[in-house]
């Protein structure tokens, strides 16, 4: 088991290094950063000074080397706009984004799995058809437009929930989150639901497909032949088997929740790192863009690693293979 985790970690680090190179080349070498960095009225002396200071006169390989050394020390450059370390700005906003993404995931799983299993168990019933039709709709609706509809309906027309910003936060068990206050929850609900909708559809589809496949297996019929109740068959025999693909996909797609939160955060003015990156792209604030991408790549690689390890815990067949 340990060997398996070690080997996977090593692979992750390699992917991380390759991606850092791509991001570095992509953002720093396409276009001329000097144009963006330096005041157009600066004289040649000033320009040369900044170029030297940033190391832009050195070979590309060397530049990348210094970029990596700085990155390992937690220095991903300073924001042009805020004048503060890019990493610090992103870390500051990360809890808000994580809270949004996790809460959305919670909504997607807690509604998606029961609905999907139901639709898989009774594929011809009216309710199942409605569930599946809604999931195609949820799959097709662009996130930002759903967000607008939610704001129009719940904030403007009904006035039930606030439409912008993050609410009060409170700290329990060392976690600072808005889920601990009523005001925080009321601010969180609309954006989280918005972000969850897309994932909800895919969880429903996965759970339904898994259920329809597993329910036909001999081991389900054998479980019935043992005289088990339908409840235990669904909760233990069915659910444990369909959870493997669902956990894999959810884990891998948690990253896409964070990516899509850029849209939701913009619509709901949620003060997370997604809104920060959109603003940074507007303002050509490259250090922020680079830092954001590096963090996202790190998150993705880590998620992949966690999913692989969890997968081996859920599926005993993989676990054994991983050891040998």
């Amino acid at each position: 088991m340990t060997a398996f985790i070690l080997r996977r970690s090593l692979q992750s680090i390699i992917v991380l290094l390759v991606m850092s190179l791509i991001v570095f080349v992509g953002v720093n070498l396409v276009g001329d950063p000097v144009d963006m960095l330096i005041n157009p009225e600066a004289d040649q002396f000033e320009i040369d000074r900044v170029i030297r200071e940033l190391g832009l006169d050195r070979p590309v390989a060397e530049q990348y080397w210094y970029f990596m050394i700085n990155a390992f020390q937690g220095d991903l450059g300073r924001s042009f706009v805020f004048g503060e370390p890019a990493l610090k700005l992103i870390i500051q906003r990360m809890p808000a984004t994580m809270e949004l993404a996790l809460f959305s995931l919670f909504i997607a799983i807690s509604f998606g799995i029961p609905l999907g299993v139901y639709a898989g168990l009774k594929p011809t019933s009216k309710i199942s058809r409605t569930i599946m039709a809604s999931s195609i709709l949820g799959f097709s609706m662009p996130t930002f437009w759903v967000g607008i509809i939610l704001i129009m309906f719940f904030s403007v027309n009904l006035g039930w929930l606030p439409s912008t910003g993050r609410g009060d936060v409170a700290t329990y068990f060392g976690i600072t989150s808005s889920i601990f206050t009523l005001d925080g929850l009321s601010h969180l609900f609309l954006p989280a639901f918005n972000l969850a909708l897309f994932k909800l559809s895919s969880v429903i589809r996965l759970a339904r497909a898994g259920t329809r496949e597993v329910i036909l297996q001999d081991y389900i019929k054998f479980a019935r032949a043992k005289g088990l109740g339908e409840g235990r068959i669904i909760r233990v025999h069915l659910l444990k088997n369909i959870m493997i693909p669902i956990v894999t996909v959810i884990g891998l797609e948690f990253g896409s929740l964070i990516a899509f939160s850029t849209v939701t955060e913009t619509v709901f003015a949620w003060p997370g790192m997604g809104k920060l990156i959109i603003d940074a792209i507007y303002n050509l604030d490259r250090p922020i863009v680079v830092a954001y991408l590096m963090i996202i790549v790190l998150i993705f690689v880590t998620l992949n690693l966690i999913v692989d390890i969890m997968y081996s815990f859920l599926d005993p067949r993989v676990r054994i293979k991983g050891v040998s």
């Binding site: 081991y219 054998f222 032949a225 005289g227 444990k240 088997n241 493997i244």
Partner: peptide, 28 residues
């Protein structure tokens, strides 16, 4: 009927590769 199944009347299936749930321990 469920009370009879696996209790007074039991059944064994054809393919032993398929009849045991792959993700549950034999004990369970």
């Amino acid at each position: 009927m469920q009370a009879y199944r696996g209790n007074r009347i039991a059944m064994i299936f054809q393919d032993p590769m398929m009849t045991l749930n792959p993700v549950l321990r034999i004990e369970t």
